[in-house]
């Protein structure tokens, strides 16, 4: 892909990100931060692509660590976001509460 095509994609995608995000209510900012955080874990793909061409112990070690980091970022990010969002529940009926 030539440079100018990549720049075009970059600029347009930035606007998409801007538009989607700008409508999030305050209350969801922490989960949102966590979810977007998980999405930049996509750098994991970079590790997967580069490791095939790598040779030598050090190169491979660097990339295994990079892939592990990327995986932590992705899996940890989505799981933790899910945990946070799981807590936004509707009110349980007060009647269901057992009186102390």
């Amino acid at each position: 892909m030539d440079l100018i095509t990549e720049f075009t994609i970059l600029v347009l995608a930035a606007f998409v990100g801007f538009e989607v995000i700008s409508k999030v209510p305050n209350t969801l900012h922490t989960p949102l931060m966590s979810a977007t955080n998980a999405i930049h874990g996509i750098v994991l793909l970079g590790g997967i692509l580069v490791i095939g061409e790598a040779s030598g112990f050090l190169n491979e070690l660097i990339l295994v660590i990079a892939i592990a980091f990327g995986t932590i970022n992705v899996i940890g990010g989505f799981l933790v976001t899910d945990r946070m969002l799981g807590m936004f529940k509707k009110r349980p009926k007060p009647a269901e509460k057992t009186p102390e």
Partner: peptide, 30 residues
């Protein structure tokens, strides 16, 4: 996010570019 997008440009990988810059944009707004 921005650095991931830059890595995408280095590796010619459009998924990294898009995923990275979306986070770059959202993080800036936040």
């Amino acid at each position: 996010g921005l650095s991931a997008a830059a890595a995408g440009m280095a590796l010619d990988n459009v998924a990294l570019i898009v995923g990275g810059i979306i986070v770059g944009a959202s993080g800036t707004i936040l």
